[in-house]
Amino acid sequence: MSEAKGKTAAQVLADYDGPHLRIMEVCGTHTHEIFRLGIRKLLPPQVDLISGPGCPVCVTQVGFIDEALWLADQGVTITTFGDLVRVPGTTRSLASARAEGARVQVVYSPLDALDYAKAHPEEQVCFLSVGFETTVPASCLAVDQALAQGVDNFSLLVANKTMPNAYAALKDSADVFLYPGHVHAITGTGLCEDLVEQGVSGVLAGFTAKELLTALAVAVTKAQEGKPFFVNAYPRVVKPEGTPAAVELIERVMEPCDTEWRGLGVIPQSGLRLREAYAAHDARKKFDMPHIEGKANPACRCGEVLQGHCKPSDCPLFGKVCTPQSPVGACMVSGEGACSAYYQYGGDLL
Protein backbone atom coordinates (compact mmCIF):
# COMPACT_ATOMS: atom_id res chain seq x y z
CA MET A 1 0.00 0.00 0.00
CA SER A 2 3.03 2.27 0.03
CA GLU A 3 2.01 3.82 -3.31
CA ALA A 4 -0.98 5.25 -1.47
CA LYS A 5 1.18 7.35 0.80
CA GLY A 6 0.26 11.02 0.86
CA LYS A 7 -3.21 10.45 -0.62
CA THR A 8 -6.12 12.29 0.89
CA ALA A 9 -9.14 10.40 2.17
CA ALA A 10 -11.16 11.62 -0.82
CA GLN A 11 -8.51 10.25 -3.21
CA VAL A 12 -8.46 6.89 -1.44
CA LEU A 13 -12.23 6.69 -1.89
CA ALA A 14 -12.19 7.82 -5.51
CA ASP A 15 -9.44 5.31 -6.36
CA TYR A 16 -11.13 2.35 -4.69
CA ASP A 17 -11.36 -0.44 -7.24
CA GLY A 18 -12.04 -3.40 -4.96
CA PRO A 19 -15.18 -5.52 -4.81
CA HIS A 20 -18.71 -4.23 -4.17
CA LEU A 21 -18.94 -2.91 -0.65
CA ARG A 22 -22.03 -2.04 1.40
CA ILE A 23 -21.37 0.53 4.12
CA MET A 24 -24.26 1.32 6.43
CA GLU A 25 -24.20 4.67 8.18
CA VAL A 26 -26.25 3.83 11.23
CA CYS A 27 -26.68 7.37 12.49
CA GLY A 28 -29.22 9.82 11.11
CA THR A 29 -26.90 12.77 11.67
CA HIS A 30 -24.31 10.95 9.56
CA THR A 31 -26.97 10.46 6.88
CA HIS A 32 -27.83 14.15 7.00
CA GLU A 33 -24.21 15.33 6.86
CA ILE A 34 -23.27 12.85 4.11
CA PHE A 35 -26.09 14.19 1.95
CA ARG A 36 -25.54 17.83 2.91
CA LEU A 37 -21.86 17.67 2.03
CA GLY A 38 -22.43 15.65 -1.15
CA ILE A 39 -20.10 12.85 -0.01
CA ARG A 40 -21.98 10.24 -2.04
CA LYS A 41 -20.84 12.01 -5.21
CA LEU A 42 -17.21 11.26 -4.36
CA LEU A 43 -17.70 7.52 -4.01
CA PRO A 44 -17.02 5.01 -6.78
CA PRO A 45 -20.05 3.04 -8.03
CA GLN A 46 -19.11 -0.17 -6.24
CA VAL A 47 -19.36 1.50 -2.82
CA ASP A 48 -22.98 1.60 -1.65
CA LEU A 49 -23.92 3.75 1.30
CA ILE A 50 -27.00 2.47 3.09
CA SER A 51 -28.81 4.84 5.43
CA GLY A 52 -29.60 2.74 8.47
CA PRO A 53 -32.15 3.07 11.26
CA GLY A 54 -30.35 5.63 13.43
CA CYS A 55 -32.81 8.46 13.23
CA PRO A 56 -34.84 8.13 16.45
CA VAL A 57 -37.72 10.13 15.06
CA CYS A 58 -37.96 7.84 12.04
CA VAL A 59 -37.99 4.59 13.97
CA THR A 60 -40.39 5.86 16.64
CA GLN A 61 -43.62 3.89 16.27
CA VAL A 62 -46.72 5.70 14.94
CA GLY A 63 -48.54 4.88 18.17
CA PHE A 64 -46.10 7.04 20.16
CA ILE A 65 -47.32 10.20 18.43
CA ASP A 66 -50.89 9.03 19.07
CA GLU A 67 -50.01 8.62 22.75
CA ALA A 68 -48.58 12.16 22.85
CA LEU A 69 -51.73 13.49 21.18
CA TRP A 70 -53.87 11.60 23.70
CA LEU A 71 -51.98 13.39 26.50
CA ALA A 72 -52.37 16.75 24.76
CA ASP A 73 -56.11 16.09 24.52
CA GLN A 74 -56.17 15.57 28.32
CA GLY A 75 -54.77 19.09 28.69
CA VAL A 76 -51.18 18.02 29.33
CA THR A 77 -48.52 20.45 28.06
CA ILE A 78 -46.28 18.58 25.63
CA THR A 79 -42.61 19.54 25.60
CA THR A 80 -40.58 18.10 22.77
CA PHE A 81 -37.57 18.39 20.52
CA GLY A 82 -38.50 20.25 17.34
CA ASP A 83 -37.82 17.08 15.37
CA LEU A 84 -41.13 15.48 16.45
CA VAL A 85 -43.52 18.38 15.82
CA ARG A 86 -44.44 17.57 12.22
CA VAL A 87 -44.31 13.78 12.53
CA PRO A 88 -47.70 12.33 11.62
CA GLY A 89 -49.50 10.03 14.02
CA THR A 90 -52.36 7.91 12.71
CA THR A 91 -54.49 10.93 11.85
CA ARG A 92 -52.81 14.05 13.26
CA SER A 93 -49.43 15.56 14.15
CA LEU A 94 -48.42 17.67 17.16
CA ALA A 95 -48.34 20.67 14.81
CA SER A 96 -51.99 20.16 13.88
CA ALA A 97 -52.94 19.61 17.52
CA ARG A 98 -51.17 22.87 18.42
CA ALA A 99 -53.15 24.69 15.74
CA GLU A 100 -56.30 23.36 17.43
CA GLY A 101 -55.18 24.77 20.78
CA ALA A 102 -53.02 22.06 22.36
CA ARG A 103 -50.02 23.33 24.33
CA VAL A 104 -46.90 22.11 22.51
CA GLN A 105 -43.62 23.64 23.61
CA VAL A 106 -40.43 23.05 21.61
CA VAL A 107 -37.37 22.75 23.85
CA TYR A 108 -33.63 22.34 23.34
CA SER A 109 -33.14 20.00 26.27
CA PRO A 110 -35.21 17.80 28.62
CA LEU A 111 -33.70 19.94 31.39
CA ASP A 112 -35.45 22.95 29.83
CA ALA A 113 -38.69 20.97 29.91
CA LEU A 114 -38.14 20.40 33.63
CA ASP A 115 -37.51 24.13 34.12
CA TYR A 116 -40.75 24.84 32.26
CA ALA A 117 -42.60 22.50 34.62
CA LYS A 118 -41.12 24.26 37.67
CA ALA A 119 -42.14 27.63 36.26
CA HIS A 120 -45.70 26.43 35.50
CA PRO A 121 -46.81 24.43 38.55
CA GLU A 122 -50.45 24.76 37.45
CA GLU A 123 -49.77 22.73 34.29
CA GLN A 124 -49.00 19.04 33.84
CA VAL A 125 -45.85 18.91 31.69
CA CYS A 126 -44.73 15.86 29.74
CA PHE A 127 -41.45 15.57 27.81
CA LEU A 128 -41.43 13.24 24.79
CA SER A 129 -38.33 11.20 25.46
CA VAL A 130 -37.04 9.84 22.15
CA GLY A 131 -33.48 9.15 21.09
CA PHE A 132 -30.67 6.67 21.51
CA GLU A 133 -27.96 6.29 24.14
CA THR A 134 -26.68 9.80 23.35
CA THR A 135 -29.97 11.47 24.22
CA VAL A 136 -31.14 9.17 27.03
CA PRO A 137 -28.86 10.65 29.74
CA ALA A 138 -30.42 14.11 29.35
CA SER A 139 -33.90 12.63 29.87
CA CYS A 140 -32.64 10.60 32.83
CA LEU A 141 -31.07 13.67 34.43
CA ALA A 142 -34.34 15.57 34.06
CA VAL A 143 -36.56 12.86 35.55
CA ASP A 144 -34.04 12.09 38.28
CA GLN A 145 -34.01 15.76 39.31
CA ALA A 146 -37.81 15.88 39.12
CA LEU A 147 -38.01 12.97 41.58
CA ALA A 148 -35.34 14.38 43.89
CA GLN A 149 -36.83 17.87 43.93
CA GLY A 150 -40.46 16.74 44.05
CA VAL A 151 -41.47 18.36 40.77
CA ASP A 152 -44.73 16.42 40.67
CA ASN A 153 -46.08 17.98 37.49
CA PHE A 154 -43.24 16.68 35.30
CA SER A 155 -43.34 13.36 33.47
CA LEU A 156 -41.71 11.52 30.57
CA LEU A 157 -43.35 9.65 27.71
CA VAL A 158 -40.54 7.27 26.87
CA ALA A 159 -39.73 5.73 23.48
CA ASN A 160 -35.95 5.59 23.83
CA LYS A 161 -34.05 2.90 22.00
CA THR A 162 -30.63 1.33 22.21
CA MET A 163 -28.32 0.21 19.44
CA PRO A 164 -26.74 -3.16 20.37
CA ASN A 165 -29.59 -5.42 19.29
CA ALA A 166 -30.25 -3.27 16.25
CA TYR A 167 -26.68 -3.94 15.05
CA ALA A 168 -27.31 -7.64 15.53
CA ALA A 169 -30.63 -7.44 13.64
CA LEU A 170 -29.00 -5.60 10.74
CA LYS A 171 -25.65 -7.31 10.54
CA ASP A 172 -26.43 -9.07 7.25
CA SER A 173 -27.48 -5.81 5.59
CA ALA A 174 -23.99 -4.31 5.45
CA ASP A 175 -20.33 -5.27 5.03
CA VAL A 176 -19.13 -2.40 7.21
CA PHE A 177 -21.01 -0.30 9.75
CA LEU A 178 -20.21 3.37 10.14
CA TYR A 179 -20.85 3.47 13.89
CA PRO A 180 -22.61 6.50 15.41
CA GLY A 181 -19.94 8.59 17.10
CA HIS A 182 -22.09 10.15 19.78
CA VAL A 183 -23.82 6.93 20.89
CA HIS A 184 -20.40 5.44 21.55
CA ALA A 185 -19.20 8.63 23.24
CA ILE A 186 -21.61 7.43 25.95
CA THR A 187 -21.28 3.65 25.73
CA GLY A 188 -17.61 3.32 24.74
CA THR A 189 -16.10 0.97 22.17
CA GLY A 190 -16.47 -2.40 23.93
CA LEU A 191 -19.50 -3.44 21.91
CA CYS A 192 -17.76 -2.62 18.62
CA GLU A 193 -14.77 -4.76 19.68
CA ASP A 194 -17.11 -7.63 20.62
CA LEU A 195 -18.85 -7.42 17.26
CA VAL A 196 -15.52 -8.06 15.52
CA GLU A 197 -15.51 -11.46 17.27
CA GLN A 198 -18.88 -12.13 15.64
CA GLY A 199 -17.51 -11.18 12.23
CA VAL A 200 -19.02 -7.70 12.14
CA SER A 201 -16.79 -4.88 10.85
CA GLY A 202 -17.15 -1.22 11.59
CA VAL A 203 -15.56 2.21 11.81
CA LEU A 204 -16.56 4.73 14.44
CA ALA A 205 -17.02 8.07 12.70
CA GLY A 206 -17.15 11.73 13.64
CA PHE A 207 -19.29 14.34 11.95
CA THR A 208 -17.12 16.87 10.10
CA ALA A 209 -16.41 16.50 6.37
CA LYS A 210 -12.87 15.42 7.11
CA GLU A 211 -13.90 12.94 9.79
CA LEU A 212 -16.55 11.35 7.60
CA LEU A 213 -14.25 11.06 4.57
CA THR A 214 -11.47 9.64 6.72
CA ALA A 215 -13.79 7.07 8.32
CA LEU A 216 -15.01 5.97 4.88
CA ALA A 217 -11.42 5.77 3.57
CA VAL A 218 -10.53 3.61 6.57
CA ALA A 219 -13.57 1.41 5.87
CA VAL A 220 -12.75 0.71 2.21
CA THR A 221 -9.04 0.18 2.92
CA LYS A 222 -9.49 -2.18 5.86
CA ALA A 223 -12.27 -4.09 4.11
CA GLN A 224 -9.77 -5.17 1.46
CA GLU A 225 -7.67 -6.91 4.08
CA GLY A 226 -10.34 -9.57 4.24
CA LYS A 227 -10.86 -9.96 7.99
CA PRO A 228 -13.32 -8.36 10.40
CA PHE A 229 -12.08 -5.11 11.92
CA PHE A 230 -12.96 -2.21 14.13
CA VAL A 231 -11.33 1.23 13.98
CA ASN A 232 -12.17 4.17 16.21
CA ALA A 233 -11.82 7.06 13.77
CA TYR A 234 -13.26 9.54 16.31
CA PRO A 235 -10.94 9.12 19.32
CA ARG A 236 -10.95 12.84 20.14
CA VAL A 237 -14.50 12.35 21.44
CA VAL A 238 -15.01 8.59 21.89
CA LYS A 239 -12.92 6.97 24.60
CA PRO A 240 -12.83 3.16 25.00
CA GLU A 241 -14.68 3.44 28.31
CA GLY A 242 -17.21 6.00 27.02
CA THR A 243 -18.80 8.18 29.68
CA PRO A 244 -19.29 5.81 32.63
CA ALA A 245 -21.37 8.22 34.72
CA ALA A 246 -23.89 8.45 31.87
CA VAL A 247 -24.13 4.66 31.52
CA GLU A 248 -24.64 4.29 35.28
CA LEU A 249 -27.32 6.97 35.25
CA ILE A 250 -29.22 5.25 32.42
CA GLU A 251 -29.08 1.91 34.25
CA ARG A 252 -30.31 3.46 37.46
CA VAL A 253 -33.27 5.26 35.86
CA MET A 254 -34.31 3.01 33.00
CA GLU A 255 -34.54 -0.69 32.17
CA PRO A 256 -34.53 -2.56 28.85
CA CYS A 257 -37.74 -3.72 27.18
CA ASP A 258 -38.82 -5.08 23.81
CA THR A 259 -39.78 -2.35 21.41
CA GLU A 260 -41.09 -1.78 17.91
CA TRP A 261 -38.90 0.07 15.41
CA ARG A 262 -41.05 1.74 12.80
CA GLY A 263 -40.22 0.04 9.50
CA LEU A 264 -38.29 -2.83 11.10
CA GLY A 265 -40.70 -4.44 13.55
CA VAL A 266 -40.04 -5.50 17.14
CA ILE A 267 -36.38 -5.87 18.15
CA PRO A 268 -36.09 -7.67 21.52
CA GLN A 269 -34.62 -5.72 24.44
CA SER A 270 -33.82 -2.72 22.23
CA GLY A 271 -36.07 -0.27 24.04
CA LEU A 272 -35.98 1.49 27.38
CA ARG A 273 -38.64 2.28 29.96
CA LEU A 274 -38.58 4.02 33.32
CA ARG A 275 -37.90 1.85 36.34
CA GLU A 276 -40.62 1.40 38.95
CA ALA A 277 -39.04 3.99 41.28
CA TYR A 278 -39.91 6.65 38.69
CA ALA A 279 -43.50 5.48 38.14
CA ALA A 280 -44.89 8.78 39.40
CA HIS A 281 -43.10 10.50 36.51
CA ASP A 282 -43.98 7.91 33.86
CA ALA A 283 -46.73 9.52 31.77
CA ARG A 284 -48.26 6.17 30.78
CA LYS A 285 -48.77 5.20 34.41
CA LYS A 286 -49.42 8.63 35.82
CA PHE A 287 -52.28 9.41 33.44
CA ASP A 288 -53.53 5.83 33.27
CA MET A 289 -53.10 5.82 29.53
CA PRO A 290 -54.98 3.18 27.52
CA HIS A 291 -53.04 0.96 25.13
CA ILE A 292 -52.78 2.90 21.88
CA GLU A 293 -51.77 1.24 18.64
CA GLY A 294 -51.00 3.41 15.60
CA LYS A 295 -51.47 2.49 11.98
CA ALA A 296 -48.73 2.96 9.38
CA ASN A 297 -49.34 3.13 5.62
CA PRO A 298 -48.92 -0.41 4.25
CA ALA A 299 -47.53 0.75 0.87
CA CYS A 300 -44.50 2.37 2.51
CA ARG A 301 -41.18 0.57 1.86
CA CYS A 302 -39.19 2.19 4.66
CA GLY A 303 -38.28 -1.14 6.20
CA GLU A 304 -36.55 -2.17 2.98
CA VAL A 305 -34.86 1.24 2.66
CA LEU A 306 -33.49 0.98 6.20
CA GLN A 307 -32.00 -2.41 5.37
CA GLY A 308 -30.58 -1.27 2.04
CA HIS A 309 -32.87 -3.57 0.02
CA CYS A 310 -34.14 -0.66 -2.05
CA LYS A 311 -33.42 3.00 -2.70
CA PRO A 312 -35.89 5.64 -1.51
CA SER A 313 -36.81 6.41 -5.13
CA ASP A 314 -37.80 2.75 -5.65
CA CYS A 315 -40.77 3.23 -3.30
CA PRO A 316 -44.05 4.00 -5.11
CA LEU A 317 -44.92 6.70 -2.57
CA PHE A 318 -41.56 8.55 -2.66
CA GLY A 319 -41.77 12.16 -3.80
CA LYS A 320 -45.40 11.70 -4.88
CA VAL A 321 -47.66 11.28 -1.86
CA CYS A 322 -44.71 11.06 0.52
CA THR A 323 -42.66 14.27 0.81
CA PRO A 324 -41.02 16.12 3.72
CA GLN A 325 -44.02 18.49 3.77
CA SER A 326 -46.50 15.62 4.08
CA PRO A 327 -44.55 12.52 5.06
CA VAL A 328 -46.10 9.06 4.98
CA GLY A 329 -43.27 6.78 5.97
CA ALA A 330 -40.74 6.62 8.76
CA CYS A 331 -37.77 7.66 6.64
CA MET A 332 -39.47 10.83 5.39
CA VAL A 333 -40.68 12.20 8.73
CA SER A 334 -37.43 13.68 9.98
CA GLY A 335 -34.77 15.78 8.27
CA GLU A 336 -32.37 13.01 9.19
CA GLY A 337 -34.38 10.19 7.65
CA ALA A 338 -32.98 8.38 4.63
CA CYS A 339 -35.87 9.28 2.31
CA SER A 340 -36.04 12.87 3.51
CA ALA A 341 -32.30 13.47 3.03
CA TYR A 342 -32.46 11.74 -0.37
CA TYR A 343 -35.40 13.92 -1.40
CA GLN A 344 -34.16 17.22 0.01
CA TYR A 345 -30.59 17.00 -1.21
CA GLY A 346 -31.56 15.73 -4.65
CA GLY A 347 -30.45 12.11 -4.39
CA ASP A 348 -32.19 11.19 -7.63
CA LEU A 349 -31.80 14.55 -9.35
CA LEU A 350 -28.10 15.32 -9.28
Binding site: R36, L37, G38, K41, G335
Partner: peptide, 10 residues
Protein backbone atom coordinates in the same frame (compact mmCIF):
# COMPACT_ATOMS: atom_id res chain seq x y z
CA UNK B 1 -20.24 22.20 -0.75
CA UNK B 2 -17.05 22.57 1.25
CA UNK B 3 -15.67 19.33 -0.22
CA UNK B 4 -16.35 20.48 -3.78
CA UNK B 5 -19.36 18.22 -4.41
CA UNK B 6 -22.78 19.45 -5.50
CA UNK B 7 -26.05 18.91 -3.64
CA UNK B 8 -29.42 20.61 -3.65
CA UNK B 9 -30.14 23.32 -1.16
CA UNK B 10 -33.18 21.73 0.53
Amino acid sequence: TEIGAETLLP
